[in-house]
């Protein structure tokens, strides 16, 4: 795995005593500058979500609030005009939760089982199947929008949260299988064979032997799926109705709505609300997030 290990420092510089070193000062200054660059939009969002609209329109976007207020947050949460209705973002936040939890759970469970079969019960064509599965992760989803819209209609799931769960499950399996397959590939097959000789069945082996040591990869997979599904916009925009829209779609409607005054402070508050769940996950379990990111691109 390509987790970024600490202290393997590449530069073979001998450690110097903490003497003043101009090159180091420039180095740290540069790093600090880039920190500002990455944090600036977050600063803009937070600061402007806590000030009255008049302070923003008067050209004070970069300033701290003169008049601290949480009114924009209250408005974004429960009373702002999203599309046609003045419901705030709350119902859409709920939609996103209702969509994300089952979709993540189901795709992770299926991914674990698939990874188990692909590595410990190999059969002819398993690697071709895996390749086909993997390619499915990367297709432009524009390619499936039209037939999926019809299919959801046929299944009676059009414009509903269960429909979105289904879509995310279908297109989430590829990555979850990838994670578990690469993880289980490193798991000693002898243990599985030994258990088999002792008479353990297919599910017993999975349940008793592989699953107990699957914690780290399960976390990686859950975080990846959670982030991807929560942040999805294309499927949400294509397959939801007014009352089943996920948070990203609602936020976009809030911001693009052309009626009345543009309430920038409310938009920023809404944007933070949409960002908060994934941001929290990132802060709490960033290590696993990075692992997932890398395993999805660099060889696993």
């Amino acid at each position: 795995m390509t987790a970024i290990s600490e202290n393997t420092a590449a530069a073979a510089e001998p450690r110097r005593a903490s003497a003043f070193n101009p090159a180091r000062v420039v180095l740290y200054a540069l790093l600090a500058l880039f920190c500002i660059y990455y944090l600036l939009p977050l600063y803009v969002m937070v600061v402007n979500s806590l000030k009255p609209l008049s302070e923003i329109t008067a050209g004070g976007m970069m300033a701290l609030p003169g008049d601290w207020t949480i009114a924009p947050w209250q408005s974004a949460w429960s009373s702002a005009q999203v599309g046609v209705e003045a419901t705030g973002l709350r119902p859409y936040f709920v939609n996103s939760i209702l969509m994300v939890v089952p979709a993540v759970a189901l795709s992770t469970i299926l991914g674990a089982l698939n990874g188990y079969v692909l590595t410990k019960w190999p059969f002819r064509g398993a690697s071709i199947l895996f390749g086909l599965l993997l390619f499915g992760c990367f297709i432009p989803f524009q390619m499936v929008l039209i037939p999926m819209a019809r299919m959801l209609g046929l299944m009676g799931l059009a414009g509903s949260v269960p429909g979105l769960i289904f879509v995310h499950l279908v297109y989430g399996i590829g990555f979850s299988t990838l994670y578990f397959r690469n993880y289980y590939a490193a798991f000693p097959t002898e243990l599985v064979r030994a258990a088999q000789i002792d008479g353990a069945g297919f599910f017993t082996i999975f349940w008793r032997i592989l699953l107990p040591s699957s914690g780290p990869i399960a976390v990686v997979c859950i975080i990846w799926q959670f982030t991807n599904i929560w942040n999805d916009f294309l499927f949400g925009a294509s397959f939801s109705d007014f009352d089943s829209q996920p948070m990203t779609v609602a936020l976009n409607n809030l911001v693009q709505s052309s009626t009345g005054v543009k309430e920038y402070n409310v938009h920023f508050a809404g944007a933070i609300m949409a960002a908060l769940p994934t941001l929290l996950v990132y802060i709490v379990a960033g290590r696993f997030f990075v692992r997932g990111l890398m395993a999805g691109s660099v060889k696993g």
Partner: peptide
Amino acid sequence: YPMALSFIVTGVA
């Protein structure tokens, strides 16, 4: 951290 955000959030900001 921006990688954890939705492109919609990034777009709005």
